[in-house]
Amino acid sequence: MKAFNIRSIVFTALFGALFIALSSVKFDLGFSAVPITLQNLAVMLAGAFLGARLGFTSITIVLLLAATGLPLLHGQGGLSYMTGPTGGFIAAFPFNAFFVGLFVVMLMNSRFSSNRTTTIVGLFLIFEVFGSLLSYVGGVPWLMHSLDYSFHLAMVKGCYPYLLGDALKAVVATAITMSLYPFIAIYRAKQSTSPTSAAHQTGMSH
């Protein structure tokens, strides 16, 4: 497989741009430093479409550019923003994309992919667990550290209010992935020099 051919570069850039675009959708909650955004929806889709490695790369490039001061996240950037109260969530995004990509490929290569209902449920669980809930592993402790919150207060202000929205975003990501997965399979097949190996990697047939 060619790791960084033109097609890979283009799609990596496109999903980086999607991440930036959806970062602009932001709703501040008056009681919390953590806004409601569509960032993790973009992260879920980057992982599902690009796979683990390129999904991780796409999101990481945006974060590195933002760290230099470019206003790419909600129109903000710079190290002070990246290490602010939401820094734990931001740092988790590349890993969200990586694990989503890893487990989506595993699901599609498994025997469960032949059953549509099982695939839908599996995708939803992958997006919910690895695309959303995983971010709280870093996000909540960093919120505690940066604002001197107790664990309970950090959960109240940085986790509980967002769980329903996370589930809805996982539903949307599942619907988009299911509707466009034949395209994803074609894209991944073109990354391989062997059509047979590409079909095995995607778990799809045409």
Rank of each mutant, 00 (worst) to 15 (best):
residue 144 M to W: 09
residue 76 Q to K: 15
residue 66 A to N: 07
residue 101 G to Q: 08
residue 125 L to I: 15
residue 123 L to F: 07
residue 90 I to Y: 00
residue 61 I to R: 06
residue 116 R to P: 00
residue 120 I to Y: 12
residue 121 V to S: 09
residue 92 A to V: 04
residue 91 A to M: 14
residue 64 L to H: 09
residue 107 L to K: 06
residue 118 T to A: 11
residue 70 L to D: 04
residue 65 L to N: 01
residue 83 T to W: 02
residue 95 F to Y: 11
residue 58 S to M: 08
residue 146 S to D: 13
residue 61 I to T: 12
residue 119 T to M: 07
residue 78 G to Q: 06
residue 125 L to K: 03
residue 132 S to G: 15
residue 137 V to K: 10
residue 81 Y to I: 07
residue 143 L to R: 03
residue 118 T to I: 13
residue 142 W to R: 02
residue 86 T to E: 00
residue 75 G to L: 05
residue 91 A to I: 08
residue 118 T to F: 09
residue 116 R to D: 01
residue 118 T to W: 04
residue 97 A to N: 09
residue 137 V to R: 09
residue 71 P to M: 02
residue 131 G to W: 01
residue 96 N to Y: 00
residue 93 F to T: 14
residue 129 V to H: 09
residue 80 S to T: 13
residue 72 L to F: 03
residue 116 R to G: 00
residue 58 S to D: 03
residue 119 T to R: 13
residue 64 L to M: 14
residue 110 S to T: 11
residue 144 M to T: 11
residue 99 F to P: 01
residue 89 F to K: 00
residue 142 W to V: 04
residue 145 H to V: 14
residue 118 T to K: 10
residue 64 L to S: 06
residue 130 F to W: 06
residue 137 V to H: 07
residue 105 V to Y: 06
residue 116 R to L: 10
residue 144 M to I: 09
residue 129 V to W: 08
residue 96 N to I: 00
residue 105 V to C: 09
residue 74 H to A: 14
residue 64 L to P: 05
residue 147 L to Q: 14
residue 129 V to P: 06
residue 130 F to S: 00
residue 132 S to V: 13
residue 83 T to H: 01
residue 64 L to K: 06
residue 114 S to R: 10
residue 94 P to R: 13
residue 133 L to K: 05
residue 77 G to M: 09
residue 133 L to I: 15
residue 112 F to A: 14
residue 120 I to W: 12
residue 144 M to P: 10
residue 147 L to M: 14
residue 108 M to R: 12
residue 138 G to T: 14
residue 103 F to H: 04
residue 115 N to K: 12
residue 93 F to V: 10
residue 71 P to G: 07
residue 129 V to A: 11
residue 116 R to H: 13
residue 88 G to R: 01
residue 75 G to P: 08
residue 97 A to M: 11
residue 133 L to Q: 12
residue 146 S to R: 15
residue 133 L to R: 05
residue 126 I to D: 04
residue 128 E to A: 15
residue 66 A to W: 02
residue 108 M to D: 13
residue 79 L to R: 11
residue 98 F to N: 03
residue 117 T to K: 08
residue 127 F to N: 04
residue 123 L to S: 04
residue 139 G to T: 04
residue 146 S to F: 07
residue 90 I to E: 00
residue 86 T to G: 01
residue 118 T to V: 13
residue 134 L to R: 15
residue 140 V to H: 08
residue 86 T to V: 08
residue 91 A to R: 02
residue 61 I to K: 05
residue 82 M to T: 05
residue 78 G to M: 02
residue 84 G to H: 05
residue 100 V to I: 10
residue 112 F to S: 10
residue 123 L to N: 03
residue 117 T to L: 14
residue 127 F to Q: 01
residue 85 P to Y: 03
residue 71 P to V: 05
residue 101 G to R: 07
residue 61 I to Q: 04
residue 68 T to A: 11
residue 130 F to I: 03
residue 135 S to C: 07
residue 139 G to Q: 02
residue 94 P to H: 14
residue 144 M to D: 10
residue 83 T to Y: 03
residue 93 F to P: 02
